[in-house]
Simulated assay, not measured.
Amino acid sequence: MATPVDPDFRARLAALNEKFAATVPGTLAKIRAALDECQSGGDQPSQAALHQLHEVLHGVAGSAGTFGFTVFGQEARRVEQLVRAVLSSHSGWPPVAPEVAKLLAWATRDAKATTFE
């Protein structure tokens, strides 16, 4: 096995993982706020509200796995794709909202869990 060029690599990665973990509650609050904004618009949220929700989910999907939150990232990606479809079609929001709520409930319990239930 090769020795890492940087002997402090694992320590720095662990510090980054801890830093990411500390941001999870704030990220969940952003997802909740975006969901609330989407739900305040009736049957079809505004494009701006959907874009905000998509943006937050996209950020989680792109970074969570790197910092040890693999399933959180995968589920955020799945829900992000649902939101993207609504953004594209300008329809289909009603079944997406419960999926966002389900992601929030799960991640609030344990965003680092290895199974999505």
Rank of each mutant, 00 (worst) to 15 (best):
P95Q: 03
H90G: 07
A48I: 11
L87R: 12
A21V: 01
A85S: 02
V24T: 01
R78Y: 06
P95D: 01
V83Q: 08
L13E: 07
K102F: 12
L13C: 00
F67Y: 15
P95T: 07
L87D: 03
K102D: 13
A21K: 01
S91N: 05
I31D: 06
T115N: 03
A61C: 11
V79C: 03
S89E: 07
S40A: 15
V5M: 05
M1H: 09
E117P: 01
A49M: 10
W106M: 11
A48M: 10
T115K: 11
P98N: 06
R12M: 04
T27I: 05
T27K: 08
L104P: 06
A107T: 02
T115D: 07
L28N: 05
A34S: 14
A101D: 11
P4Q: 02
E75G: 08
G65N: 13
E55F: 14
L82R: 02
S63D: 10
K112M: 06
C38I: 10
A97R: 13
L82F: 06
G26Y: 03
L50V: 06
R32Q: 13
A76Y: 09
A48L: 09
Q81W: 01
W93I: 02
A2W: 10
P94E: 09
A61L: 00
V86R: 09
S46T: 15
W106S: 12
D36T: 15
P4H: 06
V60L: 15
S88F: 05
L53Y: 13
P45E: 12
F20K: 05
E18T: 00
K102R: 15
D36A: 15
A113L: 08
Q52G: 10
S63E: 08
F67D: 04
A14L: 00
R32E: 10
P4E: 06
A21Q: 00
S88T: 00
E37K: 14
